[in-house]
Design a protein around this nucleic acid. Sequence first.
DNA 1: CAGTGGTCTAGACCACGGC
DNA 2: CCGTGGTCTAGACCACTGG
Lengths: 236, 236
Amino acid sequence: MLLKYQEIAESIENHIRDNALKQGDKLPSLEQLVTEYKVSKSTIRKALELLESKGAVYQLRGSGIFVRSLKRPGYIDLGFSRGFKKDLGEFEMTTEVLAVEVRAASAEVAANLNIETGDAIYYIKRLRFIYGKPLCIEESHYDKSVVPYMNKEIVKDSIFYYLRNGLKLSLGFSDTYFNIGKINEAESKLLKLEVGEPALRLENIFFLATGQAFNYSKTTYNYEESQFFIQATSTD
Amino acid sequence: MLLKYQEIAESIENHIRDNALKQGDKLPSLEQLVTEYKVSKSTIRKALELLESKGAVYQLRGSGIFVRSLKRPGYIDLGFSRGFKKDLGEFEMTTEVLAVEVRAASAEVAANLNIETGDAIYYIKRLRFIYGKPLCIEESHYDKSVVPYMNKEIVKDSIFYYLRNGLKLSLGFSDTYFNIGKINEAESKLLKLEVGEPALRLENIFFLATGQAFNYSKTTYNYEESQFFIQATSTD
DNA sequence: CAGTGGTCTAGACCACGGC
DNA sequence: CCGTGGTCTAGACCACTGG
């Protein structure tokens, strides 16, 4: 069941979408929203803070609450407050599973997952396509003590959907590191690029809501097919 | 003057730093913090939410408040809630100013700044070095009606510092787009790379707190010298 | 079931924008 | 000066964790 402030946030988002409001359009004042939704001011503010953190609105003391929509289409949202919807999206994506196996954690994996070298992990390698073209190679390592079972079918769809709905795990936060490099021999075949062409290499560590790291993954993106997007809000 | 919740957030951050607390270390409970700081529970919660959004702590219903430090050193923080400190940082950075001039906005610039083609803008081109090595080429366009004056001296330091402290502008939020490409002829000379080598191309649009766009910039990073970092929090 | 975080309220008071 | 968002309080009640 949704909380009041979540419901209100959603309702306001819908209102923006349904009326096709654009960047800079004004929303009703706090007071108006309080009477409209019949809740306390703080609850409305909490809803608006949520929307602000998602980049949907901005608030201006003394003048009002305004829409901040925008966002160029076709970019992968590397954000954030948006939750962990990265996996899905408006894109036509397909996945080829290259490996699903239990392994002993290497020193590198163990360090990132905060476990011991040799501990059991699930190793998953996937090739992901966007509109039929190779988008990225993803190698994931899951702490087996957290995710005791996986198979090809699960891994072919959204893994995070399985974690959330199948295993009832609640995700907390993530760290992302990335840099630019060059495609190597193995990658060139999978991504259908020449050796030495540009590549975006992304490392992710995902944590449960309990703070425990459970997934360390490395992803190499095809530079021709990938565009990324980030929305930021100042907290001065 | 700092607000109560900001002061408390800062104080907690200092406490974490001074006691060298690590990922997973437990902080005092809400109730304890309330008595310690002699403020209401909501104020403490607001401070903790701020820290949570900055990625400094995480809260767990039923168990407590924990430290979330980490962060590999040497990565450029492409975040976010962290405010707009991108310009400075712990790095030894220098800047070479290649151009500071008033120009008429191109169609592309006008579209991103939401002004008319031909309107006056400041065009600034800078080459930035990290530990003496070329890090990136940055081409910035500032709406002249917002930033009426700039010169080489201002532009050699942090432009955002000037905007904030000199012009008393308050920054609101930003959109960032990026993709991977290849170094072209002109870039190769400045960044001391071969044509065709990998490049990270970043586009930024910065908005004032009023929602008005005032800066559109394009930055090309030297792939050898740049590593980036993002911290995300789930909002489920 | 005790302890801890999370939601929600009602209301006082403050700070800023714009007329 | 009015309207609008922002801070802060005090307290009720809920929901989850862990012994």
